[in-house]
Each structure stands twice: as C-alpha cells, then as structure tokens.
Simulated assay, not measured.
Amino acid sequence: MSDKENKTYWFEKDENKDRLFYWLIALAAVMALPDILSLLGILYETHPYTKAEEVPVFYGLYAAIGMMAVLTIGRMFSHFLTVREDYYD
C-alpha cells in the first residue's frame, strides 16, 4: 500500500469537522451583527424615502420575494428551453 492510501486528510477527522462547524457559526454571527444592530437602530439611523421602507424587515422581504420571482420565472422558462432526452438520436 502506498502512503496516499493510508493518509488521513484534515477533514476526515471528527474534531476538525466540529471545529469547522463552530467557525462557520461564528462567522455567520459576525456577519449578521451589522444587520441586527441596524434593525435595532443602534448602528445608524435610517431615513426611509417611502412608507414601505419604514417596515423593519422591508429589505429582507423584498429580497426574498425577488428571489422567489426569479426562481419561478426561471422554472417557467426551463420548460421551453429543455431538450428532449432523445433529441440527438
């Protein structure tokens, strides 16, 4: 057997998987911190231009609805753009 077959890689060890998971959780918390602070009005004061922007989660809802619209439109167009399985036969 060669050394490559017996080698244990970094991600195969259970303690490293747990360590990576906790680092990813910490990174997600740090990246969410500005959003949480702005939601509470601590980071900066917002100046909405419209009444809809006064809703605290307006931008999150706007992004979620926009993504759902893009996915729905993409799924509708995929039916027109797909090729039958036996097309080249």
Rank of each mutant, 00 (worst) to 15 (best):
I25R: 02
S2E: 08
Y88H: 10
D3Q: 11
A28W: 00
K7D: 13
K13D: 10
G74L: 04
L39G: 01
Y22L: 11
A28Y: 00
D89L: 09
V57P: 00
A29H: 00
S2C: 08
E12I: 03
Y88D: 09
L20T: 15
Y62N: 10
A32G: 02
R75P: 00
W10E: 13
K51V: 09
T46H: 09
K4W: 08
P56F: 05
A64C: 04
R19C: 10
A26N: 04
I73T: 07
K17V: 09
E45G: 07
V30D: 00
Y87C: 06
A69H: 03
Y62D: 09
V83M: 08
Y22I: 08
D35W: 14
N16Q: 03
K17H: 04
R84V: 05
Y87A: 11
Y49K: 15
D3R: 08
F77W: 12
Y49D: 13
T72Y: 12
G66T: 10
E45L: 07
I65N: 04
D3I: 11
K7E: 15
M1N: 15
P34H: 13
N6G: 11
D86Y: 05
V55W: 13
L81M: 13
I36G: 01
N16H: 10
A64D: 03
K13T: 12
Y62T: 05
M68T: 12
R84F: 10
D35H: 13
E45V: 08
F80P: 00
Y22V: 06
I25A: 05
M76S: 07
N16T: 04
G74Q: 03
L61V: 12
D89K: 09
T46Q: 12
P48V: 01
Y49H: 12
Y9L: 13
L43M: 10
